[in-house]
Each structure stands twice: as structure tokens, then as C-alpha cells.
Design a protein around this nucleic acid. Structure first.
Length: 918
RNA sequence: GGGCGGUUAGCUCAGUUGGUUAGAGCGCAUGCUUGACAUGCAUGAGGUCAGAGGUUCAAGUCCUCUACCGCCCACCA
């Protein structure tokens, strides 16, 4: 930002000295944040809190960011929305809890650390578990500060006294207790099953962590030779199978065909020889086989394919694992043992080809599962793991949303929610990683399982009573999301019956991006309901994703990332927050580019400058330290009544938007109210009245207090979105005696009366000014010229017109500005060559000093256009009213409105026609 | 293969239960060093609301179909 040349204020005094320069977000935001901290206003029970503890608490649950991560725009948007809700509730006087936290993100963190130590020539394995974990703890003590600082820079009003980390002891205790309870209730079990294995991360993954990725592969056709009943090959007899994964041949235990496939019916029950491993396996019939695909015959590898696993179970086939943890062929792979899976593939294909058993190959588009974290191709493998039985938990979660106990916003996500929870499969919670919560299960030499929530483990095997010394703890850790799923209550001290737990569970709103609805939201719901007996929150507010201007996901590799901290340095956290919230709807993605950020910055600047003006415009008769008081109604100008009414309407509209979670709408309303009403009109009207000698002291005071009162209202309304700049301005404004030190804990405004008459009067006069400006601009009149202007004003508007005449003169560049009592008067007084202006009921004539032919022709053309448009609209309005069905069936107010509209248009047409001499 | 969302001004998007003349920002055009603000002010141009049918007195809004685009879920080798 370039620094503005500083211009002396019109009326410098102490208050404006503070605001005399252009807005400097970096300075102001740092100072304001320190003020909040010092005032202790973040905690619901902090010294500076003004909460009414009789009101129900408002708890916003924030997804704890990854401890090794750094803030991206998605975080910024979410924190902005969360903070907005919290600040709003806080200003309504509710005790609020906005608990900061960090997630240990086991697989993501290990991925980051592995790459870091790789640069130092180390690996996870070379360090060993203990040293690796030490290294991790050291690493995160640095990164966690980065993340926490970033949250502060955003202005998130988090209660730092309650900071939690998913790896702290409070969380660890909750994890052990939760798992032990699930185990006791038979909702957690250990079994061998086909799981998703990432050879790069060397751990199993849940189904959600496997990303189906389209890929161009190859479909190979391979001959399996038939054997006779003694297992001897039958020369010249074979069955051809199609496969995309030749390396899994080594684990084949059958070939399957469709039972109704005439080509193969005779072969069912016969046997084939699996190459290389010399295993004789049956040809089976199973309806899963699609006869139209490939050759219609499928090799079955139960240990390395989900389909085949099921087929194998149906047919009692052996499952032979042929790949190890790193994705290499194991000892079951005969000559290929030790080869990487893809090397083995090539070798096998080469040998098959050499033997004449590779019939052919063709390109094949397929979908392959890749690791969400490392992008490695995920390998289905058999492993003994811990699973959470999700069906009963999911049913309870579904019941909560179906009954309305928990509401999902936007509603359309409820369908996705329903579908996923209905089709849910058991959750593999074992991870073969180190950074995370160790599974609290111990095994005795006889294979008995003991699960214990005790931090030091069980004292003995609970089956055979062998002493603890003979037991071995499971080496695995939990899926990160297991501890995340406990977040709404583990952070409050559960399973201990803490005061916080009693007070703040269940929470009010859970806000997150829709991409983790299953990972996180569903698990919190399932675990919260089961373990605490109540859903963890009333509302799930799902945000969209923040994308670049072209709709691409922002990612470091694409280089299209906007760094929130850079944006904050440049334009301030307020502007960033506004840009991220304005114009968005829940669940909708946001494309963020330069323009939105600049627009938000401009708005901040506009607000700041409006405040500079107001403070600088204080009439001498009002003392510097006068407390904020409602203006003296007896001395209000029409424009004062109008802007007060507009402010009241804005309060109502913003309240409605907030109640609907329509935060983008609230931003829009405030932007328009502040810029297009307050700044464009109220301040302009006020300038004239506040000019020295333009009105009495009492009148000037009333106008100035109106400006202050309305600005105060708008600052309060805007504070949840733009906390810093509103606080900085507010602290310079006169306050009510009942106001607290900080705007952050001041009361949300309540709406005053909406004055329909004032709205209508000013609306008409604003229209008049616009119409005059328009006519002048179209006629290419010198903008600076003061032109004599006459206006016909209906009697109802005389008072408003007269009261605002000096302002109208200035705004319309009309002087002298004369009021005419009848239209005839107007026309009689104004000769040819005047610009005709129509603004609703009002009619004006502007007399240019010089009217040349071109201007006269342009003027006539303008009137012709207006007339044509008015006639078109009038015809439409008449057609509507001519429709008997409309008059009979539409609600009376609508018909009434249509009649009024018709009359107005008819009037306008008549006036324009008269002007054109018709 | 299911499901969801989108299609509104040159661009990015609002438009809450159907109801006067469909809005904003940016961009564009024409002017303005207007005593808060050039991060600004004034004025203007620009839209068959993807297409087709339907319901209704009335449709951007509700229903059906179609076409593109995007996302989610899904065990076709």
C-alpha cells in the first residue's frame, strides 16, 4: 500500500488526530489484539467478559488445524466464519466458548517429518521409534507456534486458556477410555481382513483415505493351462484370463467364469495350473463375472483384491499374500521374491510372453486407489487390525439428523450424509505408524486380548491372568480421526465430569469444510452420541472450498496459493475476512482473486475515512467527551430521520441474515448500508448542515449525534466480520455510559423504529438528485456549473424538500433551486431549452446557461427513450390488469400494487409526452 | 453405475418461502485533484436468467426432459 499524502483535516481536534492518517491495518490490528488479550475478553469467564451467565452458552467447534501445517485460505475463511458466529453471540450477551486446538495429524505429520529427516540422511527406520518420536515432538514445538500465531493474526477470538492438542494427556485419556468402552460393548473388534495398504507410508488406511484416481492402464490376456485330474498339463488346452495386474498371478487361487457363459460352461470344475508358482486351482462359476468384459474369465487373487476376496470367501478359496509391507513380492512369489511389485510385473509379462502365454494386451482406462497423503498406489492386503463396528453408531447419528436434533447446513448435504451413513462399512482404526495414540490393547503369549484404559496398562491378562510383564502392547496407533472424533468432549475433559463438560457439551455449531464431512463430522456424531448420549452439536455448518480465480483447488505444487499472512500484511485481516465471507453461501466454493481482496480493502478504507469525517465534523457546541446520546428528535433534519430509519432496517435485515447463517448476505447488507446509504447520502446531506452557520447549534448537534449513533450501530453490526477496524474506530467514538471498554463485548444493537415516511420522502428526493445529475450528464452540461433549477414538489414533500434545500442544491449542482407548487407553475416559469427531469412524482426543469443544437437534440433523444420505455412498461402493466384471472386470484396487495404502478406509469407517460409537445 | 450441485451482465458471483422495473463487485465508457476517502466521486452502457416443455393469475425461483461443467459415492478384473 502506498502511503497517502496527509492533508490537514478540516477541523482538527484531539479525536481526529488519532484518525488523521490513512488506515494502517498492520499497526492497528496488532495493537487491538493486545488490547483484547489484556482485557481478558476471550474466555467466557474472563475478567473482561460481559456475558449474561443466565443465557445458554454458545459453543463453536473449530476443526483443529494440523500441528505441522500452515494457515491457508480455507483456514482463514473458516476461522473467519467461526469467529463471526462467536463474536455475534458474545455481543448478544451469551457466554461463548471458542476453543483453540491443534491436531497431531499422525499420517500427515509423519509424511512431513519423513521428508525433513530424509534431507538429513535419516529415515523413520534408521532413527527407530523412540528417537523418531522425540524428533517429532521437537519439530512440532516449532510448528505449533506458527499455526497459533496465524490464528491470532486473523483475529480469531479463541479462548487461549483452554488450548488443547490431540496428543495431550487430556486427549489421550479420552482416547483410551473411548476405545475401552467400545471394546467392552463389542463395538471394537480385532480381526484379519483385507485392508488398504500404502506401501509408501507403510500403514493401513481407512476407505476414506484411498482416493480413486483415473489412470490409463493395460489389460493383458494370459493363458492358464488346464490340467487333468492328476495335475498334469493337458497339451493345447487353456483358458485365457484378462487382468490389469499380472503380478498378482502369484497369489491366484482360482479362475472364475459366469455360470451362464456357454463358452466356459464345460470348463467349470476343471483345473488350471498357475504359472511360476505351479499351483493347481479350480475354475469356478460365479455371477460376479461379467461375460462381456475381457475374455469373460477372471483370475481370482483373494489376498490382493476386494472383489476376489469376496469371491474367495464364497468359494472357500485360500488367500495367499504375495506382497510385503513395502510392496515387494514376498516368499510366496517363487522366483520373483524380493522384486518390487512393478518390476515383478514386467518380469512376469516377459516370461509369459517368452512362453507364448501372453496372448495380447490393450490400453485400458481404469480407476486405481491412491494414498490420499503420499499418492502411492494402494495395495489391498490381509492384515489383522482393529475395527470399529459402525452400523449401530451410524444409525444413532442418522436418527439425530432425521429428528432434527442436529441440523446440517446447507440442507443438500443431508442426502450425502444419509447415503454414506446408510452404506457405512466398519472403520479400520489401526495404523502402523508411530506418531499418534497407541492402541491400548495388550496380548498375552496365548493370544488373549486385554484392553485397558489405564495409562500404565493392565496389571494382568484378563483371560488367563498372566502378569503384565508377559503381555505385549499392540504396536499400532489409532487413525488420527479417532481422536478427532472425540474432539467436542475430549477437549472439555471427558471422561472426567468436569464443569466445562457439563457447561459446554453439547456444543452449538460445528463449522468445517464439506470435504471432511465423513472423516470428521460423521465420526464426532457417532462417537459423541454413543459415548455421551447426546449429539455433540445442534448445527453443522459446512463451508465451501476456497479456490483460485480459475476454480482450481489451491495447492503449493500448482503455485496458485494466496498466502493469508501475506494478504493480512498487505490489506489487513479485516479485509481478508470480509473478502472470504462476502458473497458466499454455505457449502458453495469461493473463487478468490485479486479483485475481491481489493474490494474488501477499499471497503475497510471507506469505513475508516467515514469515521474520520464524522469525528472531524463534530460541531463546536458538542464537547469532546460528551457521552453518546440519542439525538434530540425535535431538531432532526429529514435526512437524519431517514438514515436512522435505514439503520433500523439494516439491523433487522442483518439479524435475519445472521439467524439464517446467511453471513454473505449480512456482509452485503452492511456494505450497501455503509457505502451506498451512509457515506453516499447521509454524510453528504450532513456536510451541508454541519457547515459553519448552516443551522442552529441544536440542529447541528442533532445531525452530528445521528451520524455518530448510526456509525456506532454499523460498527457493532460489522464487528463480527471486521473486528479490528471496527474496534479501532469505536474506541475513538463517544460511548454510552453503559458501554464496556471494548466493542468486542459491547451489546449487539437492537432495531429502532423504521420510519416509512422518512424512507419514502428521502427516497423521492434522492431520486430527484439522481435524475437531475443524469439529465445534466446526458446533456453534457459542465459538471461544475451551478444551474437554475425549478422543481415541482407535491405538498407532502414540501417539508422534506425545504428542510434539505441547501443539501439538494449542492448535490444537484442546482442554484437557485426553486420549489414550484403546481406543474403548470413549473412549466410557465421555465422556457424552452430547459432540461426536463422526471423523478417519480417530482418534476424538474434545469436551465442551462447555454443550450446548443446538439445538446437540445440529445435532450430530446433522452426524453424519447424515457417515453418509449415508460410506454412499454405501461402497456405491460395494463395487460396485466386486464387479465381478469389476475385481478380475481392474486392477493389484494399485489393487485393494489399493480394498480398504483399503472397509475404512476400513466402519469409519467403523460408528462413525458407533454414535454415532447405531443 | 448411482447421487448432488452449477449454468443469471465481458469476468466472479448474490438473488431467503413464486409477486412491481433481476442486483453487486470487478471490468468497460464519459466526466470529475468536490475539505473523509483517487483504496475516491458522478453518470452511463451491458442480461431471451443454458435449451425445450409443463404447473400457475404470475416462474430466474416449482415440476419434467435435454445439453454442457464440477463434485461426491461405488468391488467391474
Amino acid at each position: 500500500m502506498t502511503e497517502q499524502a496527509e492533508r490537514p483535516m478540516a477541523r482538527p481536534d484531539e479525536a481526529t488526530a488519532e484518525l488523521a492518517k490513512a488506515y494502517q491495518p498492520a499497526e492497528v490490528e496488532a495493537r487491538i489484539y493486545e488490547r483484547w488479550l489484556a482485557a481478558d475478553v476471550f474466555a467466557p469467564d474472563g475478567a473482561g467478559s460481559t456475558a449474561d451467565h443466565a443465557l445458554p452458552p454458545f459453543v463453536v467447534i473449530q476443526p483443529p488445524p494440523n500441528v505441522t501445517g500452515s494457515l491457508h485460505l480455507g483456514h482463514a475463511q473458516r476461522s473467519g466464519v467461526e469467529d463471526l458466529m462467536v463474536r455475534h453471540a458474545r455481543m448478544l450477551g451469551r457466554p461463548t466458548l471458542f476453543l483453540p486446538g491443534l491436531d497431531h495429524a499422525s499420517i500427515a505429520a509423519q509424511y512431513v517429518l519423513d521428508r525433513l529427516i530424509a534431507a538429513e540422511g535419516e529415515t523413520r527406520q534408521s532413527l527407530g521409534r523412540e528417537r523418531y518420536l522425540e524428533r517429532m515432538w521437537r519439530f512440532i514445538t516449532e510448528t505449533r507456534e506458527v499455526m497459533l500465531t496465524q490464528q491470532r493474526r486473523l483475529g480469531a477470538s479463541l479462548d487461549w486458556s483452554r488450548l488443547r492438542f490431540t496428543m495431550d494427556e487430556v486427549s489421550a485419556r479420552a482416547v483410551r477410555e473411548a476405545f475401552a468402552r467400545l471394546y467392552r460393548e463389542d463395538l471394537a473388534y480385532r480381526t484379519e481382513a483385507l485392508i488398504n495398504w500404502c506401501p509408501g507410508c507403510r500403514t493401513s488406511l481407512s476407505d476414506l483415505e484411498v482416493v480413486p484416481t483415473p489412470e490409463s492402464g493395460t489389460l493383458w490376456t494370459i493363458r492358464y493351462h488346464l490340467v487333468d485330474e492328476h495335475g498334469a498339463p493337458e497339451p493345447g488346452r487353456w483358458i485365457s484370463v484378462a487382468t490389469t495386474r499380472p503380478e498378482t498371478i502369484l497369489g491366484d487361487t482360482a479362475v472364475a467364469v459366469h455360470p451362464d457363459d456357454p463358452r466356459y460352461r464345460a470348463l467349470v470344475g476343471q483345473r488350471v495350473l498357475i504359472p511360476f508358482v505351479e499351483r493347481v486351482v479350480p475354475i469356478i462359476a460365479d455371477a460376479v463375472v461379467d461375460p462381456a468384459f475381457g475374455t469373460g474369465a477372471v483370475k481370482i487373487t483373494p489376498a490382493h483384491d476386494h472383489d476376489d476376496y469376496e469371491t474367495g470367501r464364497r468359494h472357500g478359496l485360500a488367500a495367499i499374500t504375495v506382497l510385503d509391507d513395502e510392496g515387494r513380492v514376498n516368499d510366496n512369489g517363487a522366483a520373483f521374491a524380493g522384486l518390487d511389485r512393478y518390476d515383478a510385473r514386467h518380469e512376469i509379462l516377459a516370461r509369459l510372453d517368452a512362453a507364448g502365454d501372453l496372448e495380447g494386451s490393450k490400453p485400458h482406462e481404469m480407476v486405481i486407489g491412491r494414498c490420499q497423503r503420499s499418492n502411492d498406489v494402494v495395495e489391498p492386503r490381509l492384515k489383522t487390525q482393529w475395527f470399529v463396528r459402525t452400523k449401530p453408531l451410524a444409525e444413532a447419528a442418522l436418527a439425530a439428523t432425521r429428528s432434527g436434533r442436529t441440523r446440517i447446513l446447507p440442507e443438500r448435504f443431508e442426502k450425502v450424509w444419509e447415503h454414506w451413513l446408510t452404506e457405512i462399512r466398519d472403520w479400520n482404526v489401526s495404523r502402523q505408524l508411530w506418531w499418534g495414540h497407541r492402541i491400548p490393547a495388550w496380548y498375552c503369549p496365548d493370544g488373549h486380548v486385554t484392553v485397558s484404559a489405564d495409562p500404565v496398562g493392565p496389571s494382568a491378562c484378563e483371560v488367563c491372568a498372566r502378569p503384565a510383564a508377559e503381555l505385549q502392547q499392540d504396536p499400532d496407533i489409532f487413525d488420527t480421526w479417532f481422536s478427532s472424533g472425540l474432539w467436542p468432549f475430549s477437549t472439555l475433559g471427558w471422561p472426567e465430569p468436569t464443569p466445562d463438560l457439563a457447561r459446554f457439551y453439547p456444543g452449538t455449531v460445528m463449522e468445517t469444510a464439506y470435504d471432511i464431512i465423513f472423516f470428521w463430522v460423521a465420526r464426532m456424531m457417532m462417537l459423541g452420541i454413543h459415548l455421551l448420549g447426546d449429539a455433540p452439536f445442534e448445527t453443522v455448518y459446512l463451508s465451501g472450498l476456497v479456490r483460485d480465480p480459475y476454480g482450481q483447488k489451491m495447492s503449493k505444487t500448482k503455485g496458485n496459493v494466496v498466502d493469508p499472512l501475506e494478504a493480512i500484511d498487505e490489506i489487513g485481516a479485516d479485509a481478508l475476512r470480509f473478502a472470504l465471507i462476502n458473497g458466499t453461501a454455505p457449502g458453495n466454493d469461493l473463487r478468490l482473486g485479486r479483485e475481491k481482496l481489493e474490494n474488501a480493502r477499499n471497503f475497510t478504507n471507506k469505513l475508516w475515512n467515514a469515521a474520520r469525517f464524522v469525528l472531524g465534523a463534530r460541531p463546536a457546541a458538542v464537547s469532546v467527551d460528551a457521552p453518546l446520546a440519542a439525538p434530540d428528535e425535535a431538531h432532526l433534519a429529514p435526512a437524519d430521520r431517514w438514515i436512522r430509519s435505514r439503520a433500523a432496517a439494516t439491523v433487522r435485515a442483518v439479524d435475519a441474515a445472521m439467524a439464517d447463517f446467511a453471513f454473505g448476505e449480512a456482509c452485503r447488507l452492511l456494505y450497501e448500508a455503509i457505502w451506498s446509504e451512509y457515506c453516499d447520502w447521509a454524510l453528504e446531506f450532513a456536510k451541508v448542515r454541519l457547515a459553519p452557520g448552516a443551522a442552529s447549534d441544536a440542529q447541528q448537534a442533532a445531525t452530528w449525534w445521528t451520524l455518530v449513533e448510526v456509525l456506532d450501530t454499523y460498527l457493532r453490526l460489522l464487528h463480527p466480520v471486521m473486528p479490528f477496524v471496527t474496534e479501532a474506530i469505536w474506541e475513538r467514538l463517544p460511548h454510552r455510559p453503559t458501554d464496556p471498554e471494548s466493542l468486542m463485548v459491547a451489546r449487539w444493537p437492537s432495531s429502532g423504529p423504521v420510519d416509512a415516511a422518512a424512507d419514502a420522502d428521502l427516497g423521492a428526493l434522492i431520486e430527484l438528485v439522481r435524475a437531475i445529475r443524469n439529465a445534466r450528464a446526458e446533456a453534457k452540461v459542465d459538471p461544475a456549473a451551478w444551474l437554475p433549477t425549478d422543481v415541482f414538489v407535491p405538498p407532502a414533500l414540501w417539508s422534506a424538500f425545504d428542510g434539505l434545500r441547501p443539501a439538494l442544491e449542492r448535490l444537484a449542482r442546482a442554484r437557485p433551486l426553486e420549489r414550484r407548487s403546481t406543474r403548470d407553475d413549473l412549466r410557465a416559469e421555465v422556457g424552452e431549452g430547459a432540461l426536463a427531469v422526471l423523478a417519480g412524482e417530482l418534476e424538474a426543469a434545469v436551465r442551462p446557461a447555454v443550450v446548443d443544437d446538439a445538446a437540445a437534440a440529445g435532450e430530446r433523444a433522452r426524453l424519447e427513450r424515457e417515453l418509449a420505455e415508460a410506454e412499454r412498461l405501461l402497456a405491460a402493466a395494463r395487460a396485466r390488469l386486464a387479465n381478469e384471472a389476475f385481478v380475481a386470484k392474486a392477493p389484494p396487495p399485489v393487485v393494489e400494487g399493480a394498480r398504483a404502478r399503472e397509475a404512476e406509469l400513466a402519469h409519467q407517460v403523460a408528462l413525458l409526452a407533454a414535454r415532447l409537445g405531443r
